[in-house]
Amino acid sequence: MKRSAKMQSGFLALGAVLAASALSAHASGITPREMADALHSVMAADRAVYTRLIVNRLQNEEKIIKASEHWKDDKALVLPAQMFRFGAEEVAKSKPNFSYSLLSLWPVNKQNAAKTPVEKEGLDFVAKNPGKNFYKEETLGKKTYFTAVYADTAIAPACVTCHNNHKDTPRTDFKIGDVMGGVVLRIPINR
């Protein structure tokens, strides 16, 4: 209980920081690209910390507890991808001026497959161009967005073992350092 409460409060704090940065972006003359890059740097850092210090350490190294997509039923750790999604959902509650998700061309969960043409193009780009980000405008539901896609790479053994061995994975040859998907971040812009 205490651990989950701490995690929740941590994510709420992250949400507040991200929302505050989003609200002040336009006022201070920050471009959507700069704002997206800044937001992503926070997300990527938290994601890496959770993957390395919690999941990889406790599941793969110390073998104390497993991580499972059915974490409630299995009384297990939340998977890093789920942690990222739950964070995005928690942030979304404060109705910030941006949204983000973790998608892949090889998703374990089909809901995380690229859906829009820009998502497909962006995920393909970051997979083929290591170290580069992808930026493009797209219109969804009559709104125009600045969409940024950042590579999501395998940073720990937990990433590759889980994705390569999952029964629903469409790809089984991931290695550490491979691009496994991407963070898609959207900021609505006026046109």
């Binding site: 949204s99 829009t116 959207r186």
Partner: peptide, 12 residues
């Protein structure tokens, strides 16, 4: 909340 995500605009 799932439908606040612009990715689901088409479904909305």
């Amino acid at each position: 909340s799932k439908f606040d995500d612009p990715r689901n605009a088409g479904r909305l």
